[in-house]
Design a protein around this nucleic acid. Sequence first.
DNA 1: GATAACGCTTGCATTATGCAAGTGACAAAG
DNA 2: CTTTGTCACTTGCATAATGCAAGCGTTATC
Lengths: 127, 127
Amino acid sequence: MRSRDTRGQQAMARSKRRSICPVACALDLFGDRWTLLVIRDMACGKALFKEFSASPERIATNILADRLERLVKGGLAEPFDPPHGGGRSGYRLTAKGRSLLPVLSAIADWGLAHIRGTEARLRPAGS
Amino acid sequence: MRSRDTRGQQAMARSKRRSICPVACALDLFGDRWTLLVIRDMACGKALFKEFSASPERIATNILADRLERLVKGGLAEPFDPPHGGGRSGYRLTAKGRSLLPVLSAIADWGLAHIRGTEARLRPAGS
DNA sequence: GATAACGCTTGCATTATGCAAGTGACAAAG
DNA sequence: CTTTGTCACTTGCATAATGCAAGCGTTATC
């Protein structure tokens, strides 16, 4: 029920956008504390639900399910059949999703430069 | 009362960080739908409460007051005495805040490329 | 001194989040 | 073929954030 008709801030913002500003519209898609972390994990080669769930930030499973659904609906990610997934479906970035990597990179650079104690452990797969 | 002891997700995350990932820690600072828009406005030369409040996204005044306070506490912005402010205090980016401009720029570029109907009306002042 | 603008603050309803537990599908073990 | 376990979610519920409208104190303007 929740997963089917969640019409929260972000879903709503897609129909009634706040402004024509590209920043505002982009934030309606990934301007929260979790979406970019899931994208980060996908960029690192993670694909399975349990892999995202095992990330150190410990995303709640309901939030993860919601974000995966939004990413797919938003065209940033797509389900696929992973080679070693044991029959489970995986998720991977689409081209549109991969084009967010410069954003992720800029944020990572800023964090590394300005937040002490952060480390660049996670690096995009294939880079 | 609210403004003094709001210990929400972001304030809490500053003391108990979710992980050592620079992206996760950065998102705890500006990973919401409003903070980067205020920073965008400051980058465009806006400084007064009413100027932020007049942006097309129509941020609620309580949210704006909260974000300004967080930005100042986080060292991203600072109060100052604007020349034409009519005695009111203004807010401007610190060096740390200005270093977020590449992030803002990356997001704006992505939005312009992938969200139809967006326009680059707002441009950083002095660029 | 009255009026209005400005910079917030407050109350309250709505929405999102976090946590723990539950469910159904599937696989391997016995 | 039943049991056990894992996985991918879903659900309920408490808490926190958000949106909206109204209010409040201070400062300009008339």
